[in-house]
Amino acid sequence: MPQPADGDPGGANTPGLAALFFAFSGIALMGFGGVLPWARRMMVEQKGWMSSDEFAELLSLCQFLPGGNIINLAVVVGQRTNGLLGAIVAVAGLMMSPVVIVLLFGSAYLRYGHLPEVHAALGGVAAAAAGLILSMAAKMARPLFDRGAVVPLGVAVAAFFGVAVFSFSLPAVVLVLAPASIALAWRKSA
């Protein structure tokens, strides 16, 4: 029988509704720029709700589905442990504090946003955050470069130009490129 790795109790515990709510609140509040690593740490290592393998399986599901990955994770973990009510409670735990905090920041912005210093500070944050997102795109693209996957890289470039340069609507770009790209991936998997 495989032994769970260090810090992986193997998923022996099942949370109740209150535990779900507070766990997802905690995950949300710790996560700046990406909450998924925190989700893994809490659910696999600290609480023992699932094994590493189960988490990996859930992650592939949540990245496959449209929408926020961490939202999908909250829905599925809530559903598997406590049914419909669990899914609702987990998502509420995940969203409530962050939404309240961001709206408080928004109210402060309404009051002080006209100050040149505030606007300039936010401009700096936005410019840096754009860089953060660019680094994410580059990290995702790296395996394609390593494999020399020219056609998928072409799809990525086409999506970039369609949206960023030509300002086509996102549904139009996705509905044209995604089926073609999926068909290519299907042929390759034969």
């Binding site: 660019l134 693209a141 990525a156 999506a159 970039f160 949206v163 996705v174 995604a178 790209s181």
Partner: peptide, 26 residues
């Protein structure tokens, strides 16, 4: 698997586009 692999390049292009649009706005 084909759907997931096929969507990866589209996602990369869209995320790169997000950084471009936001960098331009900032």
């Amino acid at each position: 698997v084909a759907i997931q692999n096929g969507l990866v390049p589209v996602t990369i292009g869209l995320v790169a586009a997000a950084s471009f649009v936001l960098a331009r706005a900032a």
